[in-house]
Every structure is written in structure tokens, then in C-alpha cells.
Design a protein around this nucleic acid. Structure first.
Lengths: 217, 217, 217, 217
DNA sequence: TATGAATGAGTCTTCATTCAT
DNA sequence: TATGAATGAAGACTCATTCAT
């Protein structure tokens, strides 16, 4: 007769612990989609299935939520990655290709890719976040790639180069890819111009081999 | 008795004609610096030296002003450039270097470089502008570069390639450069990591020659 | 099987009964300190060591709590006092001094002194409370003092006077004292200007003897 | 046929200079009547005949408006008064009566009398204002009265006394009068208990002559 | 009875836009 | 044409109150 308590009240039963995550997820989507300023806190709350007031139970302010979005989505990917590459067996060219694939899988092809656009768009208004991103993402990321290039140079696979600079020739198109995807990419005309995976491979090939005609070949 | 119209203050006349331009200039600076949403029309008017009301004499709305900023700063550079390159005498590698230098001089190192950040940041909220930008800038720009690559391939200077794709390997770092400059670049830690001119040359060299060790050389 | 009610934790029992009192006490302190509007019910609950929800178990609303604060702290002092003064043996001047001392001891120098400030501050918003205070405090208070003055007049100790009015010359500075203490008194500059006990005596003396120079003395 | 331009548009013609005053006036009334917290800025604006936004054109915040209310209504009465009393010819008793009458006329019987209630009620939340009031009103006010008492003592009209303290015996009932008027006074039961002018005179008389029966008289 | 997560009406404040001058 | 005072809709945030547990 009495209803089984296991199936009742879907409304309030969600645990306090789940809320911040749900809100951050909703905020990420909305912020990426519409920008920080153009996103209403009501919308974020609504998309997370709670009321406006609830949002402020977990985040002191809209800015605070923004910071949480950035922080939470900048997972500690790098430690694991660094470890993985320490024991990599193949050639440095293969290593570079692999690193890029990994990145595409775990970041570029993920909602988190929208973060870059967010950070870039709002860096001036949130210097604190810019600095955080610089330290937590840019530096580890470039560091990892640089170590691959360095390995290639040391093993005679790559020419001598200033790795601290050529790193950006590799990274820049990845950033571009993400920015594109989350802005112009939505525009019909620009939609399918670029196929990311294909582009990444082509780009790495280009960088490795150059596009000049080979005289001796 | 009435003053001949030739008699009227030429300064004020010129002033009147110059108003929209001054406003657009002020708006560009502010929009780039703070983002569209975070810029108040009062600020724009103040920086242009007019009152808030005057701004609305020339632009129907803040959005309208935004569109004008984009439109006005996307000069018809391309027709002239296209013409210039039609008669270019040197090698295609030189041509590529030259094109990049030109770009850096006329766009990259110019306040207009901030436009890219603006367009990227607000593309979702202003699809109209994204489309406009796509048509007026992206397509002509990639077209121009593509024609250089094509020339190189045809003249046997470059390897065979899908120029419609490799074009992005050249462009992406330029976009990245501008975005960086107008966002993270302001952050102390990231300030002087990248020297643009130097980076551009190195990047083109890398693309031309690749970074793999040359076996026969 | 069920524990005899006598068995249940006497502490929790007493606790339960004590709750409203603890809440009222906490509310008094906070209301006096910060004003009614500026006090959050969370704070009251926290200071009373219970949760916000519990507060609403005992009081229908914040206003209801406010009324309880006033009511509970306007103890039935007067019946006891009236009795005490009926059998007072000394002179009416002594009686006046004694009444004032008693008041200082039981009200003026007590947290309850803050109530006056509360009532005065919120009287317009809570007419009901103003009326209650008028009937329960003002009238008995003035009545008691008036009876002392009357006694003095009847016994030839005091001059003839309209006691219903001169009563306020005695009371007003007491009210002032409490208001001062709970508002300006917190301000550093005004902190120690007035010593209450000393002032009370001086004031009563002044009222009894006047400050004019005595011709015949 | 055309309406005379002199009679048109009653809406927007009010001068900028008049606005702050009108707003402060409206705010004084409302703050006194309902308290600072219980007053909505919309109400203030409405009573001043402008929109909510206009209020914030002249005052940075509700708090700022509050401070303006206090400041603007604490006229520099004292310099003028001090001057007036320097040349006073009569007895010190007369002087005291005169001072009190003057006060009643210019402050006590004026909307500004509500300020005392405001300051007292909000002193804890606005320590800055408490200090300001202490310095600009309390000190000059007590100073002026003290000088009258001093004059009386020096001329042998008053007994020797600690004027710094007896001053409060004079002032306190005035404060009380104003507080009463603006709080309990609104309550029907307490309405007409006290007639201010009558009370003031009686009080000064009492203080001058005391209420004890004069033996030799 | 006690909790504290959730609510949403209510408040201050901002700012694009209007309009009388 | 130019001004800038005025507007009011909209947004972030607060907090008394509710209610499932």
C-alpha cells in the first residue's frame, strides 16, 4: 500500500555533492555558446535543473562560477601524459603524431575545447584566470611538446632548432581549430571547411617534411 | 545677409563628417580591449569626444555600431593585394614570405588585428557578422594564399598538396598570434614569450623546409 | 519495548523546552546590535545553535520572532516594584533615587535596555508593538514614578506640580541613556562621555534641587 | 495656434540642480517614516517624481543617499547660533529658555527632527555617520549649551556644577521628544500625551528651580 | 523534532536608448 | 546637429520561508 520509498520524489533527492558539478557543466556549455556576459545566471540554473537561488548556494558570484568552470575543466591531464611519454618507444615523428591524436581525443574533441575560446575572450576582464590558464595549461602543454621536439633533435631525427619557438608552430593550429569550432564553425558557410583530424595529421606532416619540393628525390 | 554656405566653419563641417569614423575608431579600441558586452556606449562616446546621445545619431544601436566597427575595419585589402601578387616576380617561397610580411604590416601589427578576437568572441551572438567576416575576409584571404601555393606547385617549387587544406597551416598561427596578443598577451607571465615577426618567419621556414633531418643533405 | 518517557534524555528534553528562549535571547542581542532588518534569521539560528529551519518551528515568521523578543523582555517588573514601593519608608527624594537605581540595575544596565532602541526604531513598522509597549511599559512606568512624585507632593516634600508631565523630565534622560548606549555609544568618539550611574544621580539631584543659585542659602 | 513655448512640457524641464534636493527631501521623509532598510529606492524616486534610474544619476548608492540626507540636514546652524548668543543681554535662565525655544523652532518642530531617530537607529550600521553626527551636531550642540551654563555659573546665577554633565540633563529630553514624535508618537495611545512646547518650558523650569519644596520660601 | 537544501519574490543597481532643449 | 538628463527593462544577488528527509 505504501509506495516503495525507493521510487519517490525525484525533485529534491539529488545530493548536495552533485549540484556544483551539474551547475559547472551547464555553465560551461552556456558560457562557451554565448559568452560569459551574454549568459544569464538564471539560464545556467535552469539548465542544471535548479533555481537561481540554488546556484548562489554553491558559488559566491557569477565570476566565481566562471572560475570554477575553468578550473574544473583543466583537469590534471598533463601529469599522466608526461608519464606516458617518458616511456614512448617509437620515432619522434610518431611521438608527435601520437601526442596530437591524444590531444584531439581528450581535449580538442571535447566540450572542454570551448574553454580556450572562453579564456581568450575574457582574459582581459579576468587577468587572474589568464594567469591561471597560462600556468596550468599553456606552460605544461608547451613543455610537453617541447620535450618531444628536444628528443627528436637529440636523437638526430629533427634538425637543430629553437624548440621554445617552433612549439608554437605546432600548437597554434590546434588553438585555432578550437576557436574556429566554437565560433565561426557555427556559421553555416564555414561549417565543413575543415575536418579536424585530417587537418591535424596533414599539419604535422607538413611541419615534419616541409612543402618545398625535395631536390634529391 | 545670410552667410554663404562656403563661409561656415570648415572645422565643424569636417568634424561632422568625421564623427562616425571617430566613433568607430573609439569603439574598435574599446571593444577589442574589453569585449563587446563589457564596453559601455558612454565610454565609446567619451573617447570619441562626443556625448552619448550623439552616438545614437549615427548608429541605431550598440549592435549597429559593432557591425560598423567590423565592416569598416575589413578594408578591401584583398583586391589590391591580389593585383600586387599577379605580377610578383620571385620564387613562390619568397612570395609566401612576402605575403606574410605584408599581412603583418597591414593587419597583424595594426589595431585591426583585434577584430579577429572580436569576431571570434561574438560570432555566436552575431551570426550575421560571422557570415560577413567569412565572406569578406576568410575566403579572400585563404583564396589569395591558396593561389600562391598553387603557383608554387605548378612551377614545381612545392610538392603536390591539397592547397585548400594546407592553407590553414599557414593561416592558423597568424590568427593565433592576434588572439594571443589581444588576450593572454596582456597577462604578465605570457607577455614576451612570442616575438611575432621572428615567429612568422620561422614558421614559414618550417613549413617550407620541414623539421625532419634531411638525409641526403 | 518503548522506553518509558521518564527514561528519555533529560538534557534533550530540557533543550527542547529551552529552544524558544535561546532563540529569543539570540534574536534580542542581534536585533539590538544590528537592527531588525539588518539581522538575518540565519544568524539568529546560528547564534542559538540551531538550524534555520528549527527557528520556523517555533516562530511563524521573523516578525513573529520580533514580537516575542519584545514581549518576553518586558517582564512583569512593575507589579513587584509597585508592591515594593507601597511600603517604602524613607523620604520621597530617597524614594526617587532608589527607583532610579533599581531601574538602572534591572533594566538600564541589562541587555533588555536595547529593547527601547528597537521599539523606537521599528515602532512605525510595527504599530502593534508600539501599542503593546505603550501599554505594558510606558504606562506602568510613568504611573509608578508619578505615584512617587504624588507622594512627595502630598507629604509636602515636593512643590505642587503637574506630575503627569514632570514625570517625563525624569524618564527622558533614562531613555536617552539607553538609546545612546546602543547607538552612538559604539562610536569611539562618543564612547565614554557619559557615565550612566553618575549621570543618573546628578540628574535626579538637579531635578530635586534645581540649578539656580539659592538666594537664602 | 501654436502653443506658447513658455507653457509646455512640465515633465523634463526641471533643472538638474533641483533634483538632488528633491530626492534628499523625499528620502528624509521616507527614511524617517519607515527606516532606512524598509525604504525602497523606488519609493524615494517616486516621491521625488522621478524614475529609479534618475536617483542613481545623483547618488552612487542607497547608502550614499542616506549620507547625503544626514549631511544636508545638519545645516550649519551652530555658527549662526553661537554668534547670536555671544551678544545675548538677558539673564542666563532667560538665555536657556531662549535657546530651547530656538531649537524647537528650527529643529525639533521640523522634519529634520526625524534625523535623530535615523542616526540613532542606524548608527551601528553606519559608524561613519555616527562619527560625523557626533562631531557636527552633538559636540557643537552640547558646547553651545555648556557655554550658557558656564555663563550662568560665572555670573552667580547658577550654582557651581560640572557643566559637561548637566548639559545632558537639558538635552536628553529634547532628544527624547524627537524620538518619541517619530516613533511612539504615531501610535494612537501615545499620541497626545506630551505637548512639546509646554513640556520644554516645564522641563527648563524644573531644572532651574528644582522640585523640592523650598524651606525658606 | 530537526535539518539544511531549495526556492523565488524582492531589491539594488546598470546601461542602452530616448527626447526635450 | 548635439546634448545630457531621464528612463525603465533587465540582471545579479539576497534572504525569509518551505519541505522532503
Amino acid at each position: 500500500m505504501a509506495p516503495s520509498s525507493a521510487e519517490t520524489s525525484p525533485k529534491r533527492e539529488r545530493r548536495k555533492e552533485a549540484r556544483p558539478g551539474e551547475l559547472v557543466k551547464a555553465a560551461l556549455d552556456l558560457f562557451v555558446e554565448k559568452g560569459f556576459a551574454a549568459t544569464r545566471v538564471d539560464e545556467v540554473a535552469a539548465r542544471a535543473g535548479v533555481s537561481k537561488g540554488t546556484l548562489f548556494l554553491y558559488f559566491e558570484s557569477k565570476e566565481d562560477l566562471f572560475k570554477a568552470v575553468i578550473r574544473d575543466n583543466i583537469a590534471n591531464l598533463f601529469p599522466a601524459w608526461n608519464e606516458e611519454f617518458k616511456t614512448f618507444g617509437g620515432s619522434s615523428a610518431e611521438m608527435l603524431h601520437y601526442a596530437m591524436d591524444l590531444w584531439w581525443l581528450n581535449v580538442g574533441n571535447t566540450p572542454a575545447s570551448g574553454i580556450v575560446k572562453l579564456v581568450i575572450s575574457e582574459a582581459q576582464n579576468f587577468p587572474e584566470i589568464a594567469a591561471f590558464y597560462q600556468k596550468e595549461v599553456v606552460e605544461p602543454g608547451t613543455g610537453l611538446l617541447q620535450s618531444i621536439l628536444q628528443r627528436g633533435v637529440e636523437r638526430g631525427e629533427f634538425q637543430h632548432m629553437d624548440t621554445s619557438k617552433s612549439v608554437f608552430s605546432i600548437i597554434a593550429p590546434m588553438i585555432f581549430l578550437m576557436m574556429w569550432k566554437h565560433s565561426m564553425g557555427a556559421c553555416a558557410a564555414s561549417a565543413n571547411i575543415i575536418d579536424p583530424k585530417e587537418f591535424i595529421h596533414m599539419h604535422v606532416d607538413l611541419l615534419l617534411n616541409g612543402m618545398s619540393a625535395k631536390k634529391t628525390q
